[in-house]
Design a protein around this nucleic acid. Structure first.
Lengths: 248, 248
DNA sequence: AAATTATGTGCTTTTTTTTGCAACTTTAAA
DNA sequence: TTTAAAGTTGCAAAAAAAAGCACATAATTT
């Protein structure tokens, strides 16, 4: 097998499977590991793939994970746009924390007049840019992981509220396991918010649908509306429609 | 699984769920905890995520604040440096809002272990960068002008506290009129904070000394320490020394 | 065509990287 | 404070990469 032929084969294979092992290649092409390594080196030098210990990775594979500051920002913006339409003048709105909720805060129309209640510091900061919005901050100890206030004080304050709608930034959603999260204190706060609201809206990027975390926030039927960037008729959403959720 | 592949997987997961546990990762990718820890360490060194006990956090959660357009920044930094020396491990510290207090938050030593109580959103965000600091956020309605929480709830919470020291960002200070401000609600909060503290420290840039505003926060003798960027023996400070204030 | 040069390949040895293990220390939670 | 979990350090085995060398083959020059 000629050198160029070999390298074309390697490139094809790496793009097909996203990754190759040197050991596999040298068996398949029947050359020494040295040769394979030298080929990989050459392809890597030309920027055709990314070399790794023991093999190589496809270029596209690696790029997809080199994302910018906010993960999956475009999807979150799309979700935020949809969510913003649910908020009407005069409403009392409870929101959790998280980057999707920050996008929601940014997506709110400038002239909206409503009251927003949150325990999230970055979210509150974002609300502040809206002149007609009233902000109620839930006080208590600040959890550094999640950047929201947590604890008994916060929860008892939330319980005193009767909000029209609650937007929950969702970490993991599953038709069977419901809404789950991984921080015990944050879960308590989310639970309280859900209980205090007439309508519960889960903002969930597609990737988080059908995933689970350690601690349950609520059952799937506690959620009224599920907003994702995925089209409504997509197969992945059908179980949720069956459970009675409204999809946006 | 190749190393880069593994790290890409970890990065993906941490960005997806904001937080990962080492223990989960090492089951999912089927390597030892050591390897996961080393991967996390490496990713943290490259600034891709933030390592924590037992796992890692997504970077997009810890965006810091940009203080490019702060008035008289250099003076405020100088004041903040001096103020930071007053805080010892284990203290309960009450702080108001304002850019000088933000500088104080930035000037705190990394290893300081203390509890900070504030109603200011930007200040709280700044405290969050310090790993050993406990933050208590005072909740209530947010005043957009001052970016702090104001109102009866906030004040009654402050009154429940007995703090060691209180740092007041000062808008106007005069030997006769005392500490004054121009926002009625903010004044109420500052009053409460001063009453709840053993020691009161006023952070005041030179320009604001011998100026007055509409509403009085407290008399001059309620203040224990005055910190400015002006040298102690300057003529402008003599009336304050006479009134018994300690100058820094 | 012969000689020379350049290139490609595989082998061996050395060096580096990666990984898991074990003993010990630090951290955080009860 | 006590205790369990997580982190650290040093080490050793295994895997992979790099370097140097030998040999074969192709290309180029004379």
């Amino acid at each position: 097998m000629l050198k160029q032929e070999r390298q074309a084969f390697i490139l094809h294979k790496v793009n097909l499977h996203n990754r190759v092992l040197s050991s596999d290649l040298c068996i398949e092409i029947n050359v020494s590991e040295d040769t394979v390594r030298r080929d990989l080196q050459e392809l890597a030098d030309n920027g055709k793939l990314i070399k790794a210990h023991g093999g190589a990775l496809s270029k596209s594979f690696h790029n997809s994970f080199n994302s910018s500051q906010v993960y999956s920002l475009e999807n979150k913006k799309c979700i935020a746009q949809k969510a913003a339409t649910l908020i009407k003048d005069g409403m009392f709105v409870l929101t959790t924390g998280g980057t999707t909720i920050i996008e929601l805060a940014k997506a709110l129309p400038q002239n909206l007049q409503a009251t927003f209640i949150t325990g999230s510091i970055p979210v509150a900061l974002e609300y502040m840019h809206h002149p007609n919005i009233e902000i109620i901050l839930i006080g208590d100890k600040v959890s550094k992981n999640s950047q929201i206030t947590v604890g008994g004080e916060a929860i008892s304050k939330i319980k005193q509220i009767k909000a029209d709608i609650c937007f929950v930034g969702t970490n993991a959603l599953d038709a069977e396991q419901g809404l789950t999260d991984n921080d015990w204190e944050v879960v308590q706060v989310k639970k309280a918010m859900i209980e205090s609201s007439d309508k519960v809206v889960s903002l969930t990027i597609g990737e988080k649908i059908n995933t689970c975390q350690r601690i349950q926030v609520c059952n799937i039927d506690a959620i009224d509306v599920l907003i994702t960037e995925i089209p409504k008729d997509s197969a992945i959403l059908q179980p949720y429609i069956k459970k009675g959720l409204e999809i946006m």
